[in-house]
Amino acid sequence: MNRIGIVILNWNGKDLLEKFLPSVVSYSKRDWAEIIVADNASNDDSIAFLEKNYPEINLIKLDKNYGFAEGYNRALAQLSHSYFVLLNSDVEVSENWLDSIYQQFESNPDIAAAQPKIKAYHKKTDFEYAGAAGGFIDYLAYPFCRGRIFDNIEEDRSQFNKNIDIFWASGAALFIRSEIYNKIGGLDSDFFAHMEEIDLCWRIKNQGYRIICDTNSTVYHVGGATLPNNSSRKLFLNFRNNLLMLYKNLPANNFIFTLLIRMCLDGVAALKFLLSGEFANFFAVFRAHLSFYSLLNKFRQKRKVLVAKTTCKNHKEIYKKSIVIDYYLRKKKSFSSLDF
Rank of each mutant, 00 (worst) to 15 (best):
I4M: 11
I8M: 07
W11D: 00
K14M: 11
L21N: 03
L21F: 04
L21Q: 04
P22W: 07
D31N: 15
D31L: 12
A33T: 03
E34Q: 14
I35P: 05
I36F: 13
A38I: 07
S42K: 08
D45F: 06
A48L: 12
N53I: 02
I57N: 05
I57H: 06
N65S: 05
G67Q: 09
E70G: 01
N73I: 03
A75H: 10
A75K: 11
S80G: 05
H81C: 12
Y83M: 04
L86G: 01
E92Q: 14
W97E: 07
Y102V: 03
Q103F: 05
P109C: 05
A113P: 01
K124M: 15
Y129E: 07
G135S: 13
I137S: 08
A141G: 02
A141L: 12
Y142F: 14
Y142A: 08
G147D: 06
N152T: 07
D165L: 02
I166M: 07
I166H: 04
A169Y: 04
A169S: 14
F175Q: 04
E179Q: 08
I180L: 03
N182T: 04
N182V: 01
N182S: 10
K183A: 09
G185V: 03
G185W: 07
D190Q: 10
F192A: 03
H194I: 14
I198V: 14
L200A: 08
Q207I: 06
G208Q: 05
D214N: 15
N216C: 05
V219H: 05
V219A: 09
G223P: 00
G223V: 01
G223Q: 13
N230D: 15
S231K: 10
N238E: 14
N238K: 14
F239C: 15
N242H: 12
M245C: 11
P251L: 13
F255T: 00
F257L: 13
F257V: 03
T258C: 08
L260Q: 11
I261L: 15
R262E: 08
C264S: 09
C264F: 15
C264K: 14
L265A: 04
A270N: 03
A270H: 02
A270M: 15
L271E: 06
L275T: 13
L275N: 11
F279N: 08
F286I: 07
L290A: 03
S294P: 01
S294A: 15
L295E: 09
N297P: 02
N297F: 10
K302V: 10
K304P: 00
V307R: 13
T310P: 00
C312N: 10
K321N: 14
S322Y: 07
K332N: 08
K333V: 01
S336L: 14
